[in-house]
Design a protein around this nucleic acid. Structure first.
Length: 491
RNA sequence: GGGCCGCUAGCUCAGCUGGUAGAGCAGCUGACUCUUAAUCAGCGGGUCGGGGGUUCGAAUCCCUCGCGGCUCACCA
């Protein structure tokens, strides 16, 4: 995309002038002694006299983000990954080389070396004694006060967003810390990280529509996975007792502030445990995570304060519904439930069973109010074709969902390991699919074969990492926690 | 996919009931060796998202297409 723009032409002209002066505008490695924040950290308590006396020389490299020039001297701020540092150029120090300084533009990347001092206003500053030109920037950056506001540009040109909007970088650093913490925590608990197919012949493990692709050499269609679940459970059959996978899933559905077509999911499985164990485990893992990231268990989210202090509330799905005003008789009767839902203005036109109607009512009447961390447990079997039935209530399964800030953050259950029951559940899903439910699960004979070899009793959980990061970074769109969210191509 | 809102200079934004497209920052030229939204003087910069229509005349009104945001529906 070659555009003719006066500002770009001016900068390209300066680039040629640099070449004429013998400067490589796209430079070489540069040896630094400090990052910007390290200088501030190390010398924050040093006053002007001490800096003068001890004659500290250091070198930093970064992008010029501010420029104030006075003819024979200039102040600038350099920005590196860690922060900003003021630097000071003087003609009497740099002599002939000062003519190059005059060619600098905001956005250029340079390396500087010199003495630290404090200005009249006490700002820690580097008096440049020598510098190397490292990279010419031929495109003008957004302006210094307002930065880049246009959300479309922020997502399309995330590189610019990252340069000029500091909190964006902080969010993604936090994201990295969150993921690292989870990996470390699970490994500390004896879990093994595995990688299972992203391209699957039968997309399973979730109710969702997949992306389809094609393998030429094999001559088969494949699907980008909607979940790794069925493969991870095959590993339980194979003898793994604690496994996890932390990677992307793909779902061919709408895009919204809570949905990106590719998103990051943690799934982990533990043999010989049930969903009660997972609730305690999740509470422990997330509590420690929040403490690590925020240093406290009470964190802001929009206008709310989320309090992660354990123990978290635990209600059954039906209890929760009653608590939020759903009449008891509605919960046990399809016709009554449907009637009540319609009266309340809830869309149940595609809900042909009691469980589906109750699910709709729950989403409308309960979910929006689950601000504080809350486990909702014991779901209808029909909504959970891979979960084990409750012993004393076989129409329910041992399953929980964790809600935080009215978002489903985790979904977990005691795994169904009876191959005959599993086959029945698949059959029912096939029936639903024939009725037009495009998201119903597909029959997976190989998975059933694996169960027939025997999968130990186990519990498994999925945690939506992007949503968790949203909650922990006070982000209100999933696009703010995904570096390059999916957009329509530019035209 | 539906509804609402937006798209004007590199960036952030004005532009009224249709009448010669503006500001700030950034840029260019000049002055200036402790500034930090530096200052002072001068200058340049536009397919007003694209296309079509109405009109003597359209950034402005109408139609259409594109891209985005919010929201509803589906989902995690």
């Amino acid at each position: 995309m070659e555009e003719i723009n006066e500002l770009i032409l001016q900068r390209k002209k300066k680039l040629e002038e640099l070449r004429r002066l013998g400067i490589d505008p796209y430079g070489r490695p540069y040896e630094i002694t400090h990052h910007a924040s390290e200088i501030h950290e190390q010398f924050k308590d040093w006053d002007a006299e001490r800096l003068e006396r001890e004659n500290i020389t250091c070198s930093v490299a970064g992008r010029i983000i501010a420029w104030r020039s006075f003819g024979k001297a200039a102040f600038s701020h350099l920005q590196d990954f860690t922060g900003r540092i003021q630097v000071y150029f003087r003609k009497d120090v740099l002599k002939d080389k000062y003519s190059i300084v005059k060619k600098f533009d905001i956005g250029d990347i340079i390396g500087v070396r010199g003495k630290l001092f404090r200005t009249k206003t006490n700002e820690l500053t580097l008096l440049v004694e020598d510098f190397d030109f490292l990279t010419k920037s031929v495109r003008p950056l957004p302006e210094k006060w307002h930065g880049l506001r246009d959300v479309e540009l922020r997502y399309r040109q995330r590189y610019v967003d990252l340069i000029v909007n500091p909190h964006v970088k902080e969010t993604f650093i936090k994201r990295s810390e969150i993921i690292k913490f989870i990996r470390d925590f699970l490994e500390g608990e004896g879990f093994i990280e595995v990688e299972t197919p992203m391209m699957q012949p039968i997309p399973g493990g979730a109710t969702a529509r997949p992306f389809k692709t094609h393998h030429n050499a094999l001559g088969i269609d494949l699907y980008l996975r909607i979940a790794p679940e069925l493969y991870l459970k095959r590993l339980l059959v194979g003898g793994f007792e604690k496994v996890f996978e932390l990677n992307k899933n793909f779902r061919n559905e709408g895009i919204s502030t809570k949905h990106n077509p590719e998103f990051t999911m943690l799934e982990f499985y533990v043999a010989y445990k049930d969903y009660n164990f997972l609730m305690d485990f999740t509470e422990k893992m997330l509590t420690e995570l929040v403490k690590k990231i925020h240093g406290t268990l009470k964190i802001p989210y929009g206008d709310e304060v989320l309090d992660f202090t354990p123990p978290w509330k635990r209600f059954s799905m039906f209890e929760a519904m009653k608590m939020y005003g759903v009449p008891e008789e509605v919960i046990g009767d399809y016709e009554k439930a449907r009637e009540w839902a319609l009266k309340e203005g809830i869309d149940v036109k595609d809900a042909f069973t009691l469980a589906k109607v109750l699910d709709e009512i729950f989403k409308e009447k309960v979910e929006p109010y689950l601000i504080q961390p809350t486990f909702v447990i014991d779901y209808p079997v029909e909504l959970s074709p891979l979960a084990k039935r409750k012993k004393d209530a076989p129409e329910l399964v041992e399953r929980f969902e964790l809600f935080i800030a009215a978002r489903e953050i985790a979904n977990a259950f005691t795994e169904l390991n009876d191959p005959e029951d599993q086959r029945q559940r698949f059959m029912e899903q096939m029936k639903a699919r024939e009725m037009g439910d495009k998201e119903a699960h597909l029959m997976d004979e190989d998975f059933l074969r694996a169960l027939e070899y025997g999968m130990p009793p186990a519990a498994g959980e999925g945690i939506g990492i992007d949503r968790l990061v949203m909650v922990l970074t006070d982000s209100h769109s999933i696009r703010d926690v995904i570096l390059f969210p999916q957009l329509r191509p530019e035209r």
